[in-house]
Nucleic acid binder design. Structure first.
Lengths: 157, 157
DNA sequence: GCGATGGCTGACGCGCACGTAAGGTCGCCT
DNA sequence: AGGCGACCTTACGTGCGCGTCAGCCATCGC
């Protein structure tokens, strides 16, 4: 395919994709392990195409909305088959409809959560205006950590 | 407060809440372990008030939108303090603002995912119309399970 | 020649959110 | 008295999504 002139770099290293999408090589290899993505190889090195990149994007999007990797895999498979067995397709469709309903309910949850948080924020804001206006609008790291609560675990960072 | 007449059953057993919200006793005890909820006791038995029930509802909502239990705990704490230490409040507020941004981006992801799934569904639908119109609109269980994919795990159900 | 860099393959470890026995307590029914 | 059903605690097990470490090429620049 002499498309090299039009696509100056139509393939990506594992690092490039990781940088672009903010994930780790380990994660990509993990997805490959699970069959979600299957890059070509140049010798031993993974070579990702635009298609792989698109799949990765869908994977990460799916993750962010709370889909399990196995479910994401099913969705990705759909784009491969096209004329697969009918009962399979019926199952997929039914599952997808379920998923759509779940996602829509999840969106409602998000709206409610945003409302809750926003109300909480404005409550805190009015308090801070009275007590410590210097701390308003500061990012988390600029303020300082605090003591852990009982049963609370520390996370990375 | 002589409200007993208006609230015929102002407390709940662990089972009642579990049935109402579709979770397990183990989960509720786990949340209690983490300090997210603190029901009264009648002897050894847990007795949940309406307030506990409301907290549980927030917990489950938070979970569905991808919050960690520790984060949910922070949010719940907010409703208890009212006049807590200022730096704490500033941290909370900053975290909440972050969370709001994350949730809004998550909502965009959901919209995209719904689009993807809906397009996929209609693709499948048109295929099924040609091949197996009898399978249209069937729920998942009515169709039949299939072989697991490599690396795919079974879940409850 | 040689370290730095980047990628690879196992394989073990971890935090989270519970599941799952195993065994004990309590009130009620027969 | 005996058995049940609902609840309890303690404690170990599990699935997921990676992190991390060890050990091993290949290549690049000096």
């Amino acid at each position: 395919m002499p498309t090299e002139l039009r696509r100056p770099a139509r393939s990506f290293t594992i690092r490039q994709l990781c940088q672009e999408f903010g994930c780790t090589p380990r994660a990509l290899r993990f997805y490959e392990d699970k069959g979600l993505i299957s890059p070509e190889r140049d010798g031993m090195n993974r070579v990702y195409s635009y298609k792989d990149r698109a799949r990765l994007q869908l994977i990460l999007r799916g993750k962010r909305v709370g889909l399990a990797l196995s479910e994401i895999g099913e969705i990705l498979d759909l784009y491969e088959l096209g004329d697969g067995c009918a009962t399979q397709n019926a199952i997929s469709q039914a599952k997808f409809r379920e998923r759509i309903r779940a996602l829509e309910s999840q969106r409602r949850d998000i709206d409610m959560a945003v409302d809750v948080l926003q109300e909480a924020c404005s409550r805190l804001e009015s308090q801070l205006k009275q007590t410590r206006p210097d701390l308003l609008e500061q990012p988390v790291e600029a303020i300082r950590p605090r003591r852990p609560r009982p049963g609370e675990m520390r996370r990375a960072g």
